[in-house]
Design a protein around this nucleic acid. Structure first.
Length: 266
DNA sequence: AAAAAATGCAACCGCAACAAA
DNA sequence: CTTTGTTGCGGTTGCATTTTT
């Protein structure tokens, strides 16, 4: 249903997210917040651009998201707000807690758009409204598909799970991670990222600024990533200890960020 | 049963807005 | 004021799944 994962010319992964990537992103954001999406992928050990991480988090992984199961009330609200504001999806989403602008946009185009010229103020789904009923029955069947947010545990050791899950309880919203105040976030230029990939983002896990060695390393990098079982190799310290930041530059004029025994970061 | 068409939706892209230097 | 970097928005795409022929 979603485009297959692939690597672009810069070695940045695109397309569908793997469960391991989700776990990594969730674990990182829940632990450190997202003061800077652009820097996040490299710090989290993801091969994505920051924008992709942000999108994945905002539209799929952040807590308290609803998926499917649109109520009549929600549908009516979407139609009313759309009638009033047009394609202001983010504005509409503000009025539907747990819904993302992207999901609402998709839902509008797939389910509600065709009814926009009808008397939307009387959306009572009459029995003789075949289209509407079809849509309704379909959407309700879809709604049985519960959104399963990947668990954060990275091994069979439940201690990881406990730690991370407990941290979740301290996070009230996606942007208010307890470690960061609003002021901190502002100071750090908030979140999000530009899709544009610069030289730093081109680097693999961005531990090097890449440059001429980029293409040569790509295969090794992919191979490393494919060793998804790496998650099982992490000691418990990986998710419980802070990052060790080493700003010293190596021979490639690259800087090294690594996290204890994390093979990604060495 | 097979092929074709339609659908749904996660993810991508480009760009405007904003903030900081 | 200009430049640079970051964020968030809305339009669009790609493709797995479902429905129709």
């Amino acid at each position: 249903m979603v485009r297959a994962a692939y690597f672009d010319a810069n070695g940045i992964k695109k397309g569908a997210w793997s469960e391991e990537e989700d776990k990594r992103l969730i674990a990182y954001v829940e632990r450190y917040g997202h003061p800077n999406w652009r820097q996040l992928p490299r710090l989290a050990g993801l091969l994505r651009c920051g924008k992709s991480c942000r999108l994945r988090w905002m539209n799929y992984l952040r807590p308290n998201l609803k998926r499917g199961n649109y109520t009549q009330k929600e549908e009516q609200l979407i139609m009313d707000l759309h009638k009033e504001h047009g394609n202001k999806w983010s504005l509409i989403a503000e009025n539907l807690p747990g819904r993302t602008d992207n999901e609402i946009k998709n839902y509008w185009h797939s389910h509600l758009k065709k009814f926009q010229n009808r008397n939307v103020n009387n959306t009572t789904y009459d029995d003789d409204d075949d289209d509407l009923n079809k849509s309704k029955s379909k959407s309700s069947s879809e709604s049985t598909m519960e959104h399963e947010r990947p668990k954060c545990e990275l091994s069979n050791d439940d201690s990881h799970h406990i730690i991370l899950e407990s941290s979740v309880s301290n996070v009230s919203t996606e942007s208010s991670y307890s470690s960061y105040t609003e002021e901190d976030n502002k100071r750090n230029n908030d979140d999000g990222d530009n899709d544009t990939v610069d030289n730093n983002d081109n680097s693999w896990f961005c531990f090097s600024s890449g440059r001429e060695e980029e293409s040569n390393r790509k295969d090794d990098r992919v191979a490393s990533w494919d060793k998804a079982t790496l998650f099982d190799e992490f000691g418990s310290s990986f998710w419980t200890e802070p990052f060790i930041l080493d700003n010293t530059f190596n021979q490639d004029y690259s800087y090294i960020l690594y996290y204890r025994e994390d093979p990604f970061f060495i």
